[in-house]
Nucleic acid binder design. Structure first.
Length: 499
DNA sequence: GTTGAGCGTT
């Protein structure tokens, strides 16, 4: 198969280099950066308008312009600029925040692993000088033989260069090398998160959408959207300052209002956390196994699922379970349901499950797997038929007989039925769910109350009985509510860790 | 003369 080449030059007037394209006609960003270290994209001069036009970049692949293809056009490298937020320029100087950031953004020595034996300190320096001023470059050698140990250290003058170098792999003298913060420096470097949490996402928002939108605030080095859909995503910026500046803001992307917040854990005690720290801050675990030289890029692998993927029961060594970022998840704590739906919510404490920007089926699955049915275990209550309220199976309208025909043998059919708004078959994930026609759950419960009140017992007894039940229900609901929050916390943390 | 995960004689 013949390989198509395209001509790329560092800039206009420079001599172009021919770069090989892939089978699908795209050019790998890694191929580009192997020849032009530090370059983040391509542009070309549009023959019609004479203006520079950018080349589409998606998933680490540069796509040929649809109008002209690669052709014989010369393409020019794009190098990221210090593209801070223009509107905030006047805030950049001499604010306390900036000063504080500056002290955090100091450079450190970086270890370069995987150097070819032949690479000299001079080679190393020359390679990394394309990213910025290099203050130090050393190759570690065996003192006796003088032979390289295959790794070395570099130090940049500017933090931006350091970030850029850390954000990618490097082809040095024919070998792919990793640059990392040395173990000896980990923990000593103050971590500034580059990653932000994007809440209230919809399924329509693609990684490209997010990359394109947030790219206007600064260079985006990674976009991560959990699969299956979980209504949030992570965007990583090259510049932690850009990331920080966006936190707390609401942004409208393709008509969707998303909320940006810090992806960093809210508390020190949170399990997992930011493994390793360092300026990359957010490379959780960094279980980099090394992509092929022409792999799709170095970002996806940061989120390699661990062995516990998808197992909601396996919490691992968690210090505690704390509150999730409910606001970022779009949960305000204020119930927003219309009055006729209010009773459908068995929690009834302002937590509006119907409005959750996550798939209720997922919540149900998580709760079920974790053994935390919301309502199911209420079936074991001594109070007769209490679960009727949440278990309106087709054969069960009298309110006098327990409904034994649970769907799929679920251990907590009440909750699942509630999820399905009154005993209909599970629809397997249709969401958002259409509003219920009727509050059947409420009806069942009221029917039960009616039976009690209509009984022959004295008024005092009845009141006492009802009051006792209500108290019990209330306490249970609070417990459920807390458990649910913990589940959200767990879900968020899982997502946060890349699971 | 060989090797290919690691972590630096300051």
């Amino acid at each position: 198969m013949s390989v198509e080449y395209l001509q790329v030059a560092e800039d206009e007037g420079e001599e172009p280099i021919e770069l090989p394209t892939e089978d699908d006609g795209t050019l790998l960003l890694s191929t580009l950066s192997a020849q032009f270290p530090g370059s983040s994209g391509l542009k070309y001069r549009n023959p019609e308008t004479k203006a520079m036009r950018g080349v589409r970049l998606s998933e680490g692949r540069l796509h040929p312009p649809p109008e002209i293809g690669w052709g014989s056009q010369i393409f020019y490298c794009v190098f990221p600029k210090e593209n801070k937020r223009k509107s905030d320029d006047n805030l950049e100087n001499s604010t306390a925040k900036t000063k504080r950031m500056e002290t955090k953004l100091r450079c450190t020595d970086l270890i370069v692993l995987g150097l070819p034996w032949k690479t000299t300190e001079q080679n190393l320096r020359e390679y990394f000088e394309t990213f910025g001023e290099v203050l130090m470059a050393q190759v570690k050698k065996d003192p006796k033989t003088g032979q390289s140990k295959g790794f070395g250290f570099i130090r940049f003058a500017s933090y931006e260069s350091q970030m850029r170098v850390l954000a990618q792999r490097h082809m040095i003298d024919g070998r792919w090398c990793d640059v990392k913060v040395p173990n000896s420096k980990e923990g000593l470097i103050q971590q500034v998160p580059c990653k932000v949490f994007i809440g209230r996402c919809t399924e329509e928002l693609t990684a490209d959408d997010l990359r394109e939108y947030f790219g206007k605030y600064g260079e985006v080095t990674d976009v991560f959207i959990p699969k299956p859909f979980r209504a949030f995503s992570f965007v990583t910026f090259l510049d932690p300052e850009v990331a920080q500046s966006l936190c707390g803001e609401d942004h409208i992307i393709k008509g969707v209002s998303v909320h940006v917040s810090n992806a960093a854990p809210k508390s020190e005690t949170r399990g997992g956390g930011y493994g390793g720290g360092g300026p990359r801050g957010g490379n959780h675990g960094n279980n980099r196994s090394g992509p092929g030289p022409d792999g799709p890029g170095m970002y996806q692998q940061r989120y390699n699922p661990g062995p516990n993927q998808g197992n909601w029961n396996n919490q691992g060594p968690r210090g505690n379970i704390d509150m999730p970022n409910l606001q970022a998840l779009g949960i305000t704590g204020q119930g927003q349901q219309s009055s006729n739906q209010q009773g459908c919510n068995p929690l009834g404490l302002g937590l509006n499950l119907s409005a959750l920007p996550m798939n209720p089926a997922l919540v149900a699955a998580a709760l079920n797997q974790a053994g935390w049915g919301l309502i199911g275990n209420l079936q074991n209550q001594p109070e007769p038929n209490f679960n009727q309220g949440f278990n309106n199976g087709p054969n069960n309208n009298s309110g006098n007989t327990p409904n034994g025909s649970n769907q799929g043998g679920s251990s907590n059919p009440g909750f699942l039925n509630w999820m399905n708004q009154g005993g209909q078959n599970q629809d397997g994930g249709q969401w958002p769910r259409p509003p219920p026609q009727q509050d059947q759950a409420n009806k069942g419960f009221l029917k039960f109350l009616g039976l009690v009140l209509k009984s022959g017992a004295s008024g005092r007894l009845k009141t006492d009985f009802v009051w006792r039940i209500l108290k019990k229900i209330f306490i249970r609901l609070i417990i459920k509510y807390l458990i649910l929050n913990s589940v959200f916390s767990l879900m968020e943390e899982r997502a946060f860790c890349g699971y």
